[in-house]
Amino acid sequence: MEPTAFTKQQKTPAFIFPSLGWFIFFLIIPLGIVVAFSLMHKGAYGQIEYRLDLGNFARVFEPIYLKTVFRSLLLAAFTAGTCLVLAYPLAYLMARSGDMLKKLILALVIVPFWTNFVIRIYALKLVLGENGLINQLLRELHLIAAPLQLTDNLIGVGIGMIYNYLPFMVLPLFVALDKLDFTLLDAAYDLGASRVQMALKVLLPLSLPGIVTGSIFVFIPAFGEFVIPDLMGGSQSMYVGTLITETFLKSRDWPFGSAMSTLLVLMAMVSFVIVLSRASRDPAAREMRGKRAEAGPVHV
């Protein structure tokens, strides 16, 4: 890339100091403290003793905790996968519809964010409850005799997770599909591709960046989620998020909780690095660069 006035600039501009300060004080330092705690020893009364103890990390790999990690991974994967399957057609529809409809759907996707997250989950719990809207409706229609158990179990957790994370999948997919040139699909069809081939050979590879971004946006927070399993899952099973909260607040084992947190952050960072390194190779990024090159003079 040609050096521009901005890339050439050596001096850090003053306007980034407030945000830099924010990051240092509220992110880097707390994270440093968590990492430091994770390497220390827990005293008999829950206090922190300032001596090195690598046992915290070793404990994370005990079967009971590994099982929890595995269960959380499963939940996160289920959430990301289901959201992807549900969000893709919606995002495609949005990208292909007219300006008005596009904006309307976009608004509908975003509107839930206007309400507090916990309130939304409680509302959902009511809707899904024994005397909730859904059960009442099904009974009115004589589709069921006894109410369905939709909350305080895995079904409730699943519904809650999908409900909450769907927008995080829809938005990146929409961004990817919205800038896609749909005459490429016509071109593929013209060259003899079937509908399935059009989807697999053109649509999928070109929307891959959106799929990856959306999956990361859903997977990582879903992996550490503790409110939804707590509120929607009853007291049935433990997830990483719940485990960490309880370790800190109930068992008051800060070093062990810190060790688990550190590993979670590490996992998140590793997946981001993978995505970022992919992004430099992905076709959409290349396309954007191509567009910029096109704007320049054409040499014969």
Binding site: L184, A187, D190, G192, S194, Q197, V202, L206, A284, R286
Partner: peptide, 27 residues
């Protein structure tokens, strides 16, 4: 019948060879 599109509509994720080969591969 085949069409050359108004703005070429070349597949950005495929190289020159694979673009040209696309129709034959579909067949």
């Amino acid at each position: 019948v085949h069409m050359v599109f108004q703005k070429y509509a070349l597949f950005p994720h495929l190289n020159v060879f694979d673009n040209v080969a696309f129709g034959l591969r579909m067949k």
